[in-house]
Write a protein that binds this DNA or RNA. Structure first.
Lengths: 341, 341
DNA sequence: CTGAAAGCGCTTACAG
DNA sequence: CTGAAAGCGCTTACAG
């Protein structure tokens, strides 16, 4: 049978209150008492029942984390960061993957969104789900949204400046001397994708240049591959391509390779996200590193501030991405691939 | 203030017992009572306190899942599968990433390994951690180990037959006509890696062939790249390479590409795991698909069997991988790359 | 079909 | 520094 706090108290010859105090590291316990209790705990292999603790304390010590999938490296890095941050605070991570269809996500969120079940919720989603916000507010559960670009509500959020990311990437190419710059952006419904394209446009406009071409698609290898293959077929290639993310960049390079077009000699490619493969596959991909660890840490911090009752509505923390130039970007060729001498 | 079961009872004009019954979907409630209770629940926006439920029921409805990292696609697929399986059963997923250093993992596991905190634990680890097993057994927490190849204890586990995987892959190459087959296996401390190599050796021996070469390294792009680059420098390349996983295969192809050696015309490559990129980057990688979803489902099933008290010690469920031939494997060339006419 | 009572295992004031 | 008492919000027999 599992030992309870009463067993420990009895064995140690003290009251359960004292046992509770040493469990909770209260300082007001005589050293000798503490010792006896510790000994009893050891001997009985006692571990406090967390359900009882939660009930008595009115808090569960678990934080819910909602994520859209388990495949995106950026997301996984944030999850890892959150996991670590929570752990140092003695909190648990209850993970829930929000499926695609609405019913599904409804069930899941309701499941997680029970007060007393979680002390707070972290939402990591590229898409703004209004019903989550409503639901969470209804139930009075503290929450913060991470990596979301919409915040017209009084909602705490941690965002990464994607406009700056898109801008920086373009500046990099501009400074290398490129003028014919194309862009394969992410999907329209993702504001992060939108913002990167906006940053691109801003930077171009600033120097009085027109985008060579702009296409949009999913954050996927196939998007990059298909679009670039089409461009090649059309014999209309810029001297540099800004990709919405690294998957697109890998796909773009894949298509280029099949046509023996060299990167970066013939064309420069730059991605976004710093996928693990970016620094491993050759040539090493120039890209943008998002502060994933920072996002996780700040998210947890903001959530705990809120849980502590700091009435900090609508706190928005904006983090900056960092460009990492590697081997896929260089000066433009004298002549574009399909240009005549 | 949050509504309790008493508020609901009062408003509905019944006792808390009846409310409890409708919450728990007991059939022994008069329709009219049930209706009143439902109405009160709606009006008060009542949600049962899960800590109280856990305490009263003696179970938490949460399952702990221990994983080594958040980057391996196979692992993530299993996590997803477990998440779904748990959800349909009304269970929560408490995730914990086991860090590298021992201290760390100790802290984490102790944290998760509290009876009453979790009803059961699923361990997904390529390395057999004896202290986990001991600890879990001590505390009498049901658990099952997934994707582990060692099971000398009375421990339930779900394993995938890596020997068969290695064997099948080799047969595939053999049937295409290859005789000079090399292998870049995963690390020595991973039994899964070991088994794949064993499968390779077995298949070769069966047809009276010697392995052309066998090297080992981490499951990493760099391993494949470095080893193949070395082979190229040594002018000693087999006509087919069996890679311990897809990362190694990607690295191998990367090195080959830099030397303009064609896949599969000059050399065949086959990976393991069916990484998302395997079917996207060109040429599409021949590989082995592990039954990740199945592993998750069976793991959850086995765990629940155990939780229900089925005294099923040492249940081992062995699942089979499936080879997926794609475009990186074909008949061997007339002459090896470095062979003279 | 329904409810009074006891209990799940802790923590929190309060009093000393 | 310590303990008696009440309470956290539910569920589980038990009796009716």
């Amino acid at each position: 049978m599992k030992a309870s706090i009463y067993d420990v108290a009895e064995r140690a010859g003290v009251s359960v209150v004292t046992v509770s105090r040493v469990i909770n590291k209260a300082t007001t316990v005589r050293a000798s008492s503490k010792e006896k209790v510790m000994k009893a705990i050891k001997e009985l292999n006692y571990q406090p029942n967390s359900a009882a603790q939660s009930l008595a304390r009115g808090k569960s010590n678990v934080i819910g984390l909602l994520i859209p999938n388990l495949t995106d490296p950026f997301i996984m890095e944030v999850v890892d960061s959150v996991d670590r941050a929570l752990e140092t605070k003695g909190y648990f991570l209850a993970l829930s993957v929000i499926g695609g269809n609405d019913n599904d996500s409804d069930v899941r969120s309701n499941f997680l969104f029970q007060q007393e079940r979680v002390d707070g919720v972290l939402i990591l989603t590229p898409i703004f789900e209004e019903n989550y916000v409503t639901s969470l507010k209804d139930k009075n559960i503290p929450f913060v949204i991470m990596d979301n670009q919409i915040f017209p509500y009084t909602v705490s959020s941690i965002v990464v400046d994607n406009i700056k990311g898109g801008y920086d990437v373009t500046r990099h190419l501009l400074e290398l001397g490129h003028t014919k710059i194309g862009c394969i952006g992410g999907p329209y419904h993702l504001l992060s994708a939108e913002h990167r394209v906006t940053g691109f446009k801003n930077a171009m406009q600033e120097v009085g240049l027109e985008p060579f071409v702009i296409k949009r698609g999913d954050f996927d290898v196939e998007t990059g591959y298909d679009i670039v293959a089409q461009w090649i077929q059309d014999k209309a290639l810029p001297t540099a391509i800004i990709c919405g993310d690294d998957h697109i960049a890998f796909g773009a390079m894949d298509a280029l390779r099949e046509h023996a077009i060299r990167v970066p000699e013939d064309i420069s490619i730059i991605g976004y996200d710093d996928h693990p493969f970016a620094s491993k596959l050759h040539p090493h991909l120039s890209t943008v590193k998002q502060p994933a660890v920072e996002v996780g840490i700040k998210g947890v911090e903001a959530l705990f501030d809120q849980m502590r009752g700091k009435k900090v509505n609508n706190i928005v923390i904006k983090l900056e991405p960092e460009i990492i130039p590697r081997s896929t970007t260089s000066m433009p060729p004298e002549l574009g691939i399909f240009e005549e001498d």
